[in-house]
Write a protein that binds this DNA or RNA. Structure first.
Lengths: 108, 108
DNA sequence: TCATTGCATTAGCAAATTATAATATACAAT
DNA sequence: ATTGTATATTATAATTTGCTAATGCAATGA
């Protein structure tokens, strides 16, 4: 398994910071099945409009998500599927309760 | 690919914050081949003693690394190998220059 | 044209983060 | 006992982050 060369550490750390927040991580998770507009994200995250908008803005500037306008709404989606791999690793680390093994775990 | 349930989002975000810093991410990368003491980490990261110590302390409190004293020195190592998977995903996202494909890339 | 809806932006403040400098502690050697 | 080495802790100041409230602006509909 390789490492991150020194010249890329800064970018990688910045990218991490763009996700290292409860609300932003939640947004990332909610977007895993496809684009959602701000209104929908407001509902599922229970965040205020302004607050959510600011976090979306940050995530967009940091390259985590991209958006496209459809009529009056703005739809956001994940910019790079690798961010879902990242979420998956987090799940393996921080969700010990969740079912994580292969199906043969049902054996016995 | 699964998501992180709401009840674990807070922990996961906290864990991310514990790595979302240039110096801390660099430390994590340097530890990938085994334990290192503070002096060694000071050399490779070029950080000041106090600064490094504080960051190590934070990473330890957040469960990223663990330490054990050997004589006068304190050796740190990665607490959970999954953190290396996390680094690997970061590398795939933020190191486009690095050689990332399989060996068959040499074909042709 | 006027009101409404969906979202972004700005301002302001509280809280968290980070770096430096100084001091403390533990161990080792003389 | 004293000195030196390795690391931790504390204090502090500067910067960044995050939330709320207020305002702006584009698209829609009456």
């Amino acid at each position: 398994m390789q490492t991150i060369p020194e010249e890329n550490i800064k970018d990688a750390a910045q990218g991490l910071r763009a996700i290292a927040h409860e609300l932003r991580l939640a947004v990332l998770c909610h977007l895993k099945n496809g684009p959602m507009c701000v209104n929908e994200l407001m509902e599922v995250t229970a965040a205020s409009q302004s607050n959510l908008s600011q976090h979306l803005s940050k995530m967009r500037m940091m390259g985590i998500i991209v958006n496209d306008k459809r009529g009056q709404q703005v739809y956001y989606r994940i910019a790079n599927p690798e961010f879902l791999s990242l979420v998956d690793v987090l799940r393996r680390i921080y969700c010990p309760e969740a079912y994580q093994g292969s199906l043969e775990g049902a054996k016995g």
